[in-house]
């Protein structure tokens, strides 16, 4: 069983993602926590040490990229999946360079999410 940290500034998006994860894996992967900002994401990562992070890109104050940078600096093995909107390929590319392992596109499709999570966790 693995634990997941969801990072998104929208409470609504966190809620839907959480629901999706819990339904799709029927308990195999659980959501350990949620963060609403890059700063909180780093803090929660240290606190909860999750197996996986889903990371929104555009957030107030600091972006998801900043969070990826800092989390990877703390834990080189951090497994981060970027959750991006369409048309953000450049940013996603940058995130992968920084150490993100995979990405999914909003609106999130169940099979994409399952594939992505299994790929990253399985590694």
């Amino acid at each position: 069983m693995s634990t997941i940290l969801i990072v998104d500034d929208s409470k609504f998006m966190r809620l839907t993602l959480k629901n999706l994860i819990e339904k799709s894996f029927s308990g195999a992967h659980t959501v350990a926590g949620e963060a609403g900002s890059a700063k909180e994401a780093v803090q929660k990562y240290q606190e909860l040490k999750p197996d996986l992070v889903t990371m929104d890109i555009i957030m107030p104050e600091e972006s998801g990229l900043e969070a990826v940078k800092r989390i990877v600096a703390i834990d080189g093995n951090a497994k981060i999946i970027m959750v991006s909107a369409m048309g953000q390929e450049k940013i996603v590319e940058e995130a992968m360079m920084l150490g993100a392992r995979s990405f999914i596109v909003k609106p999130v499709k169940t099979e994409d999410l399952i594939k992505s999570i299994e790929k990253v966790i399985g590694r």
């Binding site: 909003k106 609106p107 999130v108």
Partner: peptide, 18 residues
């Protein structure tokens, strides 16, 4: 950029809900 970000979030949300 605040406006842009909020609009973007709104788009993502509504796409999710269809």
């Amino acid at each position: 950029s605040d406006i842009f970000r909020v609009a973007h979030t709104l788009k993502g949300m509504s796409a999710t809900m269809g």
